[in-house]
């Protein structure tokens, strides 16, 4: 059964068609990653699912349409980690994570004890307790990313959208965050849709990939079928070598064409 079903999604921004006729089906409990060159429309697609962008077409979660849902209701179904989350001045980690409880806090009211309990549990899960009183502006990239993740998880939504969650992290922290998402996905039965620019990492942490180019889906399927030298060089304008490692992983290595030619020539000589 597919949890998220996007049908014929169309988005036009400032008179430009940014997404055209995008269909997407994400099985419940799986992890689908959007890849594609800069400006392909990955962020726009995620924002549309999160309800932050005007669009035509249908977006449904478990057979229920998300369009026309009140923002509060929608935020209980879909949690979104934006590409560049704002760090509000003067807010500490506890209050930042508590923002995720907004869809459960009645209008005119403040958080209840049960909201605080949800957040306490998340602070432990994401190893944020020591940072609880720190202003978010003082956190390192990795620490802040965990806080943003905690905020999204506090929404207790079955669908988690991650837009380039590792773009500001080094290799180790990137892996840690993605491992954490994967654990949480399994533990809590979440469905995850992410956008990642690093193709090798994308291959390691997704069940399926969707290659988006100029607002259209040009390939989709298991990692091995999407990460091919042909597709990548055609759509990224990059020279790469795709290496399949022993345990089924796919490694995408950029190569420098001049060097490649030189090597060939010396081989021939």
């Amino acid at each position: 059964m597919s949890a998220l079903a996007v049908g014929r999604l169309d988005v036009t921004l400032l008179g430009r068609r940014v997404l055209g006729d995008v269909d997407l089906a994400v099985p419940s409990g799986s992890w689908v990653t959007l890849v594609g060159p800069n400006g392909a429309g990955k962020s726009t697609l995620l924002k549309a699912v999160a309800g932050a962008v005007e669009h035509a077409g249908s977006i449904g979660l478990d057979e229920v349409s998300l369009d026309g849902m009140r923002s509060r209701e929608r935020a209980r179904q879909v949690a979104f980690v934006p590409q560049e989350p704002t760090r509000p001045d003067g807010m500490n980690v506890v209050d930042y994570v508590l923002l995720g409880r907004t869809p459960y806090v009645p209008y005119f009211a403040v958080e209840s004890a049960s909201d605080v309990a949800v957040v306490e549990e998340l602070l432990d899960t994401l190893e944020l307790r020591e940072l609880a009183d720190r202003p978010v502006t003082s956190l390192s990239g990795g620490e802040f990313q965990r806080a943003v993740l905690a905020r999204a998880l506090a929404q207790q939504a079955p669908l988690l959208l991650l837009d380039e969650p590792t773009s500001s992290l080094d290799l180790g922290h990137a892996q840690q965050v993605l491992e954490l998402v994967d654990e949480l996905r399994v533990d809590r039965g979440l469905t995850v849709v992410s956008a990642l620019h690093d193709l090798t990492t994308a291959g390691q942490f997704a069940d399926r990939l969707v290659l988006l180019v100029d607002g259209e889906v040009v390939a989709e399927g298991p990692v091995r079928e999407v990460l091919t030298e042909k597709l990548i060089s055609a759509h990224y304008g990059a020279a790469v070598r795709v290496v399949h490692d022993a345990d089924g992983g796919v490694v995408v290595v950029p190569v420098r064409e001049r060097t490649a030619r030189l090597t060939k020539r010396t081989d021939g000589a």
Partner: peptide, 11 residues
């Protein structure tokens, strides 16, 4: 204070 878009996605 997180901005209108993010606030919107928080409901």
């Amino acid at each position: 204070s997180v901005g209108q878009d993010e606030a919107g996605s928080l409901g």
